[in-house]
Amino acid sequence: MALVNITTENTVITVNGRQIQDWGEAENPVTEEPIDQKTTIRRGMGGNAARLDRINPGRRVTLNLNPGGADAAYMQGLFNSNANITYSRTVIGTLENAVGAEGAIVNDATIGRAGGTSISDDVFIMEFNSFTTLRGG
Rank of each mutant, 00 (worst) to 15 (best):
L95R: 15
A72I: 02
E96C: 08
D71W: 01
E33D: 14
I111A: 10
S88E: 13
I20D: 06
T86E: 13
G58F: 05
T94I: 03
N48K: 13
A114H: 11
T8E: 01
N129Q: 15
Q37I: 05
R18T: 14
S130M: 12
T62H: 05
G137D: 07
G115S: 03
A72V: 04
A72R: 01
V4M: 00
D36Y: 13
I13C: 03
V123Q: 05
N80L: 10
A109V: 02
F124D: 02
V15F: 05
S118V: 04
P67A: 02
F131A: 06
L52V: 14
S130Y: 13
E127H: 08
G136C: 04
N28P: 02
M45N: 12
P57D: 05
L78K: 07
P29E: 00
L78G: 06
G68A: 01
A72G: 07
Q76R: 10
F131C: 07
V61D: 03
N10E: 01
F124L: 04
V15A: 05
Q19E: 14
R18C: 04
G58D: 11
Q21W: 00
I119V: 10
S118D: 06
I125C: 04
P29M: 01
T39D: 11
V15P: 08
I105E: 04
N10G: 00
E32Y: 08
A50V: 10
T39R: 15
A109D: 13
N97W: 10
S81E: 06
I35V: 10
S81L: 02
F131V: 07
G93F: 06
N80Y: 03
G93I: 07
V91I: 15
G93D: 14
L63I: 01
E127N: 09
S130P: 11
G17N: 12
A109W: 06
R43P: 09
I55L: 12
N97G: 11
P29L: 00
T90M: 12
L63D: 01
R43I: 14
G17M: 10
G116R: 10
G136V: 03
T7A: 00
I20S: 04
V30C: 00
P29R: 00
Q37H: 12
E9C: 02
I20H: 03
S81Q: 08
P34Q: 11
E27H: 07
R43M: 12
R135Q: 13
T90E: 14
